[in-house]
């Protein structure tokens, strides 16, 4: 091997390794940066007090994040239960029952849905979902609501998560060998029994991954939710009540954070909290997949 080939090899290797280490260091740098900025708040309040208290009075120096964490978890769980079954069965239909032509039409549609800016979903939520909740859904359940509610946030988030989950589920179901499906059918399974015993079982780790991606995406979504959820501090079980998720807190108050003592630290702590929760969700799903594959 001549010197120039060796040199090229060396440069490319360094470039690849450097890129990899840089990518790996980005989340760590974000976490360190957020912690550094949130440190003044943590110096004055205990961690438990911050996440368990429901009192949010920044002017008095009281920073309880519980209503924000609760709202985030509520809209995330709601959106998950609205979107996950829909995506699962749509992906099964598209890959196992429908014609290939239908899938070929659907794939670009899913890509377009994924590419729509979140503010557009937010506007759609304000114009369609909020009035629908206020005028039809809440009266149907015998209650009243302004429409700006956790339910509206959950619905908008569900629609936003669908393309991501659906795309991943389609990929997962495509990787299951045709021979395995044929084996199940040839033993006398109906199409649904084949889906239940082969597609869901073999694709289980992938299904969990897709759901994990959807939940992480829903938890961190900001603008669209902020526009429809009402942004009111409340811990209510009713889906027709307004809420105030963590990302909305950061986005709404970023402009005034310098005017109140410790407020900038509190918002950075909110960002750190969001970062850690999404990290924990991802790690949990990875661990779950690992355990499932092992068993």
């Amino acid at each position: 091997m001549n010197r120039s080939r060796r040199l090229t090899d060396l440069i490319v290797t360094i470039w690849m390794r450097g890129g990899l280490y840089l990518l790996l260091s980005i989340p760590a740098l974000i976490a360190i940066g957020l912690y550094w900025k949130a440190a003044p708040l943590l110096a004055n309040h205990s961690f438990a007090e911050l996440i368990l208290s429901a009192k949010w009075f920044p002017m008095k120096g009281e920073f309880g994040f519980m209503p924000f964490i609760y709202s985030s978890a509520y809209v995330t769980v709601l959106s998950f239960f609205l979107s996950a079954p829909l995506c699962l069965f749509a992906a099964v239909y598209l890959t196992q029952f429908g014609k290939k032509r239908l899938l070929n039409v659907m794939l670009p549609v899913i890509d377009i849905l994924a590419g729509i800016p979140s503010v557009v979903y937010g506007v759609w939520g304000v114009l369609v979902i909020v009035p629908a909740v206020s005028d039809y859904v809440a009266p149907f359940f015998g209650t009243s609501s302004s429409g700006y509610s956790l339910l509206a946030g959950g619905v908008v988030l569900a629609v936003m998560c669908i393309p991501y989950m659906l795309n991943m589920l389609i990929e997962v179901f495509h990787t299951i060998p045709v021979g395995m499906k044929e084996a199940s059918l040839s033993l006398g399974a109906t199409h649904w029994e084949m889906v239940k015993h082969v597609i869901f079982k073999k694709g289980f780790p992938g299904i969990i991954s897709a759901f994990g991606l959807g939940i992480a995406k829903a938890f961190g979504e900001t603008i669209a939710v902020l526009m429809v959820v009402g942004n009111t501090l409340d811990i209510s079980v009713s889906p027709f009540s307004p809420g105030y998720p963590l990302p909305a807190l950061i986005a709404n108050n970023y402009g005034e954070m310098m005017s109140i003592p410790d407020y900038d630290s509190a918002l950075m702590f909110a960002a750190l909290l969001l970062f850690v929760i999404i990290l924990v969700i991802n790690l949990f799903f990875r661990y779950f997949i690992h355990k499932t594959e092992q068993s």
Binding site: A183, S184, L185, L187, V198
Partner: peptide
């Protein structure tokens, strides 16, 4: 289909 056992090129045990 149960009247006809199938053996493929590659074995496909169920998961």
């Amino acid at each position: 289909r149960q009247k006809m056992g199938l053996l493929s090129q590659r074995p496909f045990p169920l998961p």
